[in-house]
């Protein structure tokens, strides 16, 4: 039997892929299938799932509802579409800001003296050792009306004899954006750094040798060769930002509700797993579509993955 296995390449392949397949099945396919099934179900009055086939949850997400204020049969409430749109635009803005902030930092670190370089990388990583939630709470302390930022500005204003009203910073979209950028910055710095560091310095010299000044060298050599890092970082940032709810929960309060919050509340507060599942699937599809078009244009940053 072993003999036959040795000769049969395709059976070998199947066997080798078996562990992966089993894991994928247990961890991905089954949960996904359950989510799909539940999303077509109905919520029972006591918050359980009644398994049927109805598209009600999806219709509700699209904004059409039978739960109308003035006795109409159906009406349109864009609440959920707004939440989806807000999540999407926040994810775009966060990713863009993170790229703008991470690139120069990564560039600086990659160009630093090797000894200092390790220290800088260490400093980038340190925040990741603290719990995610605690770090967001720290921002709350900073952004509150009585928070550190307002206190400091107040001191300065007082010193300069300027009248000062504390800023309302917490529970605004801006606060959520700041929190997101802060949380995900390291995930952009590291891949960009890796791709920059991999560029052979002789390429810079070759560019200079061929007549390129430092700006042209950057635009024609450094930037294109570091794009895989930017692409990898974008994927690492965009996808979690689309789904996370902690930052918006703590820094956005009731003002800034994202898909992540919506889903979380369906499961924990509203106790409607069917609607939560539908929202999860829509979130996943949206993320997949954006990622699909993005990676089709730029690839997966595979040079980074391969490294």
């Amino acid at each position: 039997m072993l003999q036959r296995l040795r000769e049969n390449k395709s059976t070998q392949g199947t066997l080798l892929a078996l562990p992966t397949t089993v894991w994928l099945f247990i961890l991905l396919i089954i949960p996904l299938f359950l989510t799909l099934v539940i999303s077509f179900g109905k919520r029972s009055p006591d918050g359980n799932v009644i398994y049927t086939f109805t598209l009600n949850n999806y219709i509700r997400l699209s904004g059409y509802t039978t739960d109308c204020p003035d006795g109409q049969a159906t009406c349109f409430d864009p609440l959920y579409l707004q939440i989806l749109g807000r999540s999407l635009s926040l994810a775009f803005n966060t990713t863009a800001l993170v790229i703008i902030m991470a690139y120069p930092l990564a560039y600086f670190i990659a160009r630093a003296h090797p000894k200092q370089r390790n220290m800088f990388l260490f400093m980038v990583l340190i925040p990741l050792w603290t719990n995610f939630v605690i770090r967001v709470y720290a921002w709350m302390m900073l952004l509150r009306k009585e928070g550190a930022i307002n206190i400091i500005i107040g001191w300065i204003a007082n010193f300069l004899h300027i009248p000062f009203q504390p800023f309302e910073m917490l529970y605004t979209p801006g606060a959520v954006l700041v929190g997101m950028v802060y949380e995900f910055l390291p995930f952009m710095i590291l891949p960009i750094f890796t791709s920059l560091e991999k560029i052979d310095t002789s390429l810079y010299e070759a560019a200079a040798d061929l007549g390129a000044n430092s700006i042209k060298t950057f635009l024609r050599v450094t930037l294109p060769l570091s794009m895989p890092g930017v692409v990898a970082g974008t994927i690492l940032v965009f996808i979690p930002v689309m789904g996370t709810f902690i930052v918006s929960d703590i820094l956005g309060g009731r003002q800034v509700i994202l898909v992540g919050n919506l889903i979380q509340r369906q499961f924990l507060d509203a106790r409607d797993p069917t609607f939560g599942s539908a929202a999860s699937l829509i979130l996943m599809i949206m993320t997949l579509i954006v990622t699909y078009f993005y990676t089709r244009k730029f690839g997966f940053g595979e040079e980074i993955v391969a490294a």
């Binding site: 052979d200 390429l203 010299e205 070759a206 040798d209 061929l210 050599v221 060769l225």
Partner: peptide, 12 residues
């Protein structure tokens, strides 16, 4: 102009 030992060609 220089011809580098490792050629230093632009891979992109």
């Amino acid at each position: 102009n220089t011809v580098f030992q490792s050629y230093a060609l632009f891979q992109h």
